[in-house]
Amino acid sequence: MNIVVTGASKGLGLAIADKFADDRQGHTLLLCARNEQRLHLATTYMQARYPRARILARACDMSKKEAVLQFADWILHKVDKTDIVVNNAGQFVPGSVHNEPDGALEQMINTNLYSAYHLTRALLPGMMAAKEGHIFNMCSIASLQAYPNGGAYSISKFALMGFSKNLREELKQYNIKVTAVYPGATMTDSWSGSGVDPQRIMKVSDVANMIYTASFLSPQACVEEILLRPQLGDL
């Protein structure tokens, strides 16, 4: 299968890419991240560990429409069709609506919503023609419940949830699955230096394992939502 993962150089994106690469079927992974050096290190590491996989990567700032479309065009020149798209690229900037920096909402919408919107639109024609495929949108607990200091981030994730729900209804007739993923607190860079005990929150592999499993169900089944929280609840 041909699997696209955005924001794949670290955190959840890297864990998801690693999970699909570690498959004896030898999938082709098409990855992107903003930091070219970190992306190169990640892909070199995975290719050495998983020689059966074909791992291709391109640096891309997913907050910029032109860059997203160039990434999509690169994908379409590398593979004949796209089987799985994981819209994981995102950014978290804390703040409240009344005091967050000017431009925070635009920044969050560009990175957390438009990146998924533009990439999906560019790849959908091929998936619709093949009448198969699976799109995962990395939403958040913040898509379901507003919280203090969530601000523009939460607004953008609510919007991504709406995008996911619309896609799900639109693509049923094309046999394309859509899954919205709502992770709670997960050990990524966002929690670095927070002082929170790593045992209190989820591992990135927990989320990756759920996405991987959901992607291999029968054609008759679609996991519409994946909701994961730490065992002791949200922080």
Rank of each mutant, 00 (worst) to 15 (best):
D80N: 15
L31E: 01
A15C: 02
G13F: 11
A8Y: 11
N35A: 06
D80A: 14
R49W: 10
E66Q: 15
Q70M: 08
I16A: 03
V5C: 07
L30F: 01
L14P: 08
V68N: 02
D61V: 11
L14R: 09
T6V: 06
A42Y: 05
M62L: 12
D22C: 13
D80L: 15
G7K: 02
K64T: 13
Q47R: 14
Y50P: 00
A59I: 07
G13H: 05
E36I: 12
R58Y: 01
D73I: 12
Y45V: 13
A15M: 02
Q47W: 12
G26I: 07
L12E: 04
H40L: 15
A57F: 12
R49P: 09
R58K: 11
K81P: 08
C60S: 03
L31K: 01
V5H: 02
R38P: 07
A17W: 06
R49V: 08
D61Q: 02
T6M: 02
C60A: 00
T28I: 05
I55R: 05
Y45L: 14
D22A: 06
A48F: 13
R24D: 15
A42E: 11
A21S: 10
L12Y: 01
T44C: 06
S9R: 09
L29R: 02
D23A: 08
A17R: 04
R52P: 07
Y50I: 12
A42K: 06
A21L: 05
Q47L: 09
R58I: 10
A53D: 09
E36F: 08
A57Q: 12
G26P: 08
D23L: 05
T43I: 14
A8P: 14
M46K: 08
K10P: 10
I55G: 02
M46R: 07
L41M: 13
C32K: 00
R24N: 13
F20Y: 10
S9C: 12
Q70I: 13
Q37K: 15
L29K: 00
A42I: 04
V68P: 10
G7A: 05
P51K: 04
Q47D: 12
E66P: 15
K78W: 11
A72E: 01
W74A: 06
G7Y: 14
F20N: 05
R54E: 13
R52I: 12
R49S: 15
E66H: 13
H27S: 02
R58H: 01
G7F: 07
V68R: 02
K64Q: 14
V5T: 06
T44V: 12
A59K: 04
G7N: 05
T82F: 05
R34H: 11
E66Y: 10
D61K: 03
D73A: 04
K64H: 13
A42Q: 08
